[in-house]
Amino acid sequence: MNVFDIIGPIMIGPSSSHTAGAVRLGRVANKVLHNEKPVSAVIELSGSFAHTYKGHGTDRALLAGIMGYHSYSEEIRDALKIADQRGLHYEFIPTDIPGAHPNTARMHVTGDQGGSCVVEGASIGGGNIRVDYINGMRVDFTGERNTILVMHYDKPGLIAAVTNLMAEKYRDVNIGNFRLSRPVKGGEAVMTIEIDGMPPKGMIEDIKGIRDVTNAILIRAI
């Protein structure tokens, strides 16, 4: 904790959990979609999100995040209009995700080049989030630290290839948490790597260059 956790963040109101956290959840989907422009967003809202999303602007906040805005962007207020102008079709579906945190959203987002992703996560208070699933794979990170997601095929030696690259070429990087999710042996998998400090320039691009890695993205800490 530091002074800016107490005086801060600078954010668009009205609620750190229903607005600022929601923007950050949307931003995760934006990042996972990579460089594609989102053209469709079907957003399932569970728990408190399902009941109160209009009054808190949670709908605008999630959409703003999906379009790449930050939790301090003035555009959040006009996010529905901006989405219409950009040709982003959206739909909000109140639902009940059993066992989920009360502020949970599951976002199905499609890009203009045919890519798509499903991101499920919760806004857990004070603008903090917890991302639970990406494309159905359990990830479980909070975004308190800078987090690198590496999407890849489940092949022997791949974890070593990624961590060796980090250890040898980028010696100052310290891994604070590591998780691998692999629903099916040999299938699609994701590494969740939380690091202390900022990743050095070029590291994410280098990880992407590793064989059998399909994508690597950085989710910046608050």
């Binding site: 109101g13 609620s15 207020r77």
Partner: peptide, 18 residues
């Protein structure tokens, strides 16, 4: 009030007490 109209504020320590 500005917070309630989706304005930009500083959470101090939260948005409710900004």
């Amino acid at each position: 009030g500005y917070n309630a109209s989706m304005g930009r504020i500083v959470a101090t320590p939260t948005a409710g007490s900004c």
